[in-house]
Design a protein around this nucleic acid. Sequence first.
DNA 1: CTGTTAGCGCTTTCAG
DNA 2: CTGAAAGCGCTAACAG
Lengths: 344, 344
Amino acid sequence: MPTQRRRNLTLKDVASALKTSTATISNAFNRPDQLSVAKREKILLACKELGYAGPNKAAQILRKGKSNIIAVVLADSIEYMVTDPVASSFIKGVTQMLKEHQKHLLLYAGDSESIRDVIDFVDGFICYGAPRNNKLIEQINGQYKPVVTVDFNLGSNVSVNIDNDTASYEVAKLALKPNDRVAIIGLRLIEANHTCRIYDAPLIDVEHCVTHRRLEGYLKAVDEVGLVVETGSIWHTPENNHKYARQAALEVLNSRPRPNVILCMSDLIAIEVLHCARELKIDVPNEVKITGFDGISESTRVQPHITTVYQSSVEKGRKAAKLLLNGSEESCMLSHKLQKGGTI
Amino acid sequence: MPTQRRRNLTLKDVASALKTSTATISNAFNRPDQLSVAKREKILLACKELGYAGPNKAAQILRKGKSNIIAVVLADSIEYMVTDPVASSFIKGVTQMLKEHQKHLLLYAGDSESIRDVIDFVDGFICYGAPRNNKLIEQINGQYKPVVTVDFNLGSNVSVNIDNDTASYEVAKLALKPNDRVAIIGLRLIEANHTCRIYDAPLIDVEHCVTHRRLEGYLKAVDEVGLVVETGSIWHTPENNHKYARQAALEVLNSRPRPNVILCMSDLIAIEVLHCARELKIDVPNEVKITGFDGISESTRVQPHITTVYQSSVEKGRKAAKLLLNGSEESCMLSHKLQKGGTI
DNA sequence: CTGTTAGCGCTTTCAG
DNA sequence: CTGAAAGCGCTAACAG
């Protein structure tokens, strides 16, 4: 039966046990240069024997004003992030970087009531997409801890983005030919919590929201090719998942006249459209062309591969974390790459 | 230009501004019953005007010994968790529950050096699988914060499990017929960091590790049907992902004599085997039968559906969080369900 | 119902 | 190189 300490020892306990001052013990742990090697060794050894593992972190946080915890504020619920391949990759990148710097990750849902629960002890924020709850945006903007925003801009904070306008323009341009009938399956374009066509509902108004920029890119391309997007040819899905994607895919594919180019704002949607087309015996790309966005690995595990825009979400995560940890002042625009598959 | 506070106000500042005591301000925020409604309103209003958003959390944590942060310690790196559908679902369940209780989530990698960085201020631990770094296991076991373990047991801590032996026994029993040639594709059975067959390497020795129990279940079923698993017919994969699964799948399907039953320790593996079989023009289930484990949603999005064992990882997460938050002393065994698909 | 006060456990000047 | 002492910002007795 190992001795079970009910309560942890404190620095003070150790100091009095060793007949020295608390400062010296503290220095032994935090500032080795402040005392002789011999004494330090002796103290550390004694601590180990006493079962004192080091200064209490809660006290350290208060005293130093630093916790080594970074909050990643998601656009949505944590559940959502954890199922979305793009968001997952982003987190992956962030955690790689945090790990290198011995920082820890607090995941914060963007639909939380308030950021106040953590604002005081967290060392900084990485906001991945504009939080669904607008209050958080204000709270984050009105405080003094460093912030890096990703995929959107917030005041004068440092940000990481890709050029969504250009990227979506390019992929659409690649797909479109004169006389095409275009449909767009969008992501979180309006506030609705369900899949639907967009007629005249106001678009969600977040400064430079990713999906709106993609929409602009598409529309620009459509325009340049001399086409128009017919009323009722833009779909909204509330979340990037199979369920909503399938609903939209079936609506689009079963609409008449059937569009022959479907511009999808994510690969997940594009893949679902591809599956549905197969089920409905619609030939891709001869009867319907499809483009995606993101370049997730699954887009090259389906046949034909999805034509899409690749962006490195892992890199995005790494970059965001790096900027935050370096206290950099320079926002950054990451590159994207057209990825030609067999769906156009 | 909004007034930017460089430094936050403290309770004391507010108290002196309002010519009252700090205790009263504190009570206004924490214990409404300790002062008149009128005074409380007045204080709260004044705080808002002053720009004081409430007591500093870092100080509160130290003082109250409570942070409302729960650490989820993963078996592996955070990156890994975030890509694995089973682990993601688990996190989903945990976060649902935490949200209901206004707790926050700190993700902790199981391959971290030490748990000390967070041990002092976190309110408790949920360990999802035995952390890869054994030191963490000891550290977690040798401290006083509440712990709930999932998919493994640790000392006398409360745990959440499913009956892996029985589940794997059942699914194998369903698949196996006399004269079958059996192969098993396992998950993290040995320490190796690459895909390989297992001959006589020692199995990873973690108390009641999930995958070993599954192995036992399989072997029991094989035995009961009067078969044996030939030497070299058990494969090890280090992580539950497409890459390793594919390596193992191809090795198995290209081995001669080719096994006609492949028992896979995860659906992800089973699905990859199915894909590879298709590529190699091997008929499933006539030439090769496949079983999976977990019952992830993708297992019913492939044709034929995977025959597998369904376990609710979301429920597991919810349960684990619930036990921790309730301070329950009762471990729990969640149910599983055979899910018959077309792969056997 | 309100105010005073002693810490929570630690770090960091600043004298010695 | 060492030790005494002043807080970090807050809460919870406790006394009034």
